[in-house]
Design a protein around this nucleic acid. Structure first.
Lengths: 158, 158
DNA sequence: GGAAACTATTGCACTCATGCAATACTGAAG
DNA sequence: CTTCAGTATTGCATGAGTGCAATAGTTTCC
């Protein structure tokens, strides 16, 4: 290997570092949530936030869990008044899940917190460097492709 | 607000997008781990990987859980042969925890996977843009500061 | 030497997530 | 109308994480 002269290698290192920082920020945005919801529950909220009307079976699908698990997770979220459960009119077998105002607020709060943190970092960057960062990120984002709602993936078991 | 003309705003948007992509990659690097360890357990492994000799009480501290929880988490990790437990010579009250070869391999595998993914993204970027990305990331990383082992934070309760 | 402090562990109790099998409705197709 | 398929839920069981309190072994400090 030709030492650190390779730009690709150097870029990887820089990206690993940046990645660490960004993941840490994302994780920090989630901190404090433990009081209200568990991580699996938060995942469910995120799914519900993205697709406003969802049946339990769809939620189960999205979260890759069994329907019974989804039902019981909803039990807990409904008890916390973060989710509403209404019977479908069109098909009376079905149940429709919707975020409550509180539920929506909770998800919004997390993303707002994350945005705020990112803004703070950017504020520390000189204006002309910001321009270059924007350009570089545009290129990076194009290369990385669309990320299918990252926070979702934050699941693991999580 | 002066529309999208503000570079800071535009930078935030780009950064949010990039952040999503990077979190998704980090999460994907963790995928498949569920077979072997839970997320709390993985967090413990990461802590042990960073500080090679650790007492249960220190681990508990790092993970922000009670000592009894740490003990029992170690029970499971020892059972899986990912962690070794030895009695301290200097102070026979204490127990010293160490990653086993398997444990170290598991953590390495995750970071390697992440690096590989990041490299793939970079490979899609034209060489001269890479140079600019490196420079931009250097500035960004300076502004973001050191992230204290991100994956750790990936915990939430998790 | 004995009290006080520290370490690890275990007993007990609880919540959550999880899946598999019923069960109960409802709708659709014949 | 009867059977079949789709949907949600509940019963049952398990494993994990969690903390508090009690226990046991060690040091340390008078």
């Amino acid at each position: 290997m030709s030492a650190a002269a390779e730009p690709a290698e150097s870029a990887t290192e820089s990206l690993v570092t940046a990645s660490r920082a960004l993941v840490a920020i994302a994780a920090r945005s989630l901190a404090g949530l433990e009081e209200q919801v568990t991580l699996p529950q938060y995942r469910a909220l995120v799914v519900l936030a993205s697709r406003s009307q969802l049946r339990p079976v769809d939620l189960a699908d999205s979260l890759d869990v069994s329907p019974s698990t989804a039902t019981r997770m909803c039990d807990r979220l409904v008890a916390k008044e973060l989710v509403e459960r209404v019977h479908s009119d069109s098909d009376r077998r079905e149940v429709v899940l919707r975020l409550s105002a509180d539920g929506r607020a909770l998800v919004s709060e997390v993303t707002a917190r994350r945005r705020r943190e990112l803004r703070k970092v950017i504020a520390r960057i000189p204006a002309e460097d910001q321009e270059r960062l924007i350009e570089a990120l545009r290129v990076f984002n194009a290369a990385a492709g669309e990320a299918p709602e990252s926070v979702l993936a934050l699941g693991m078991s999580l």
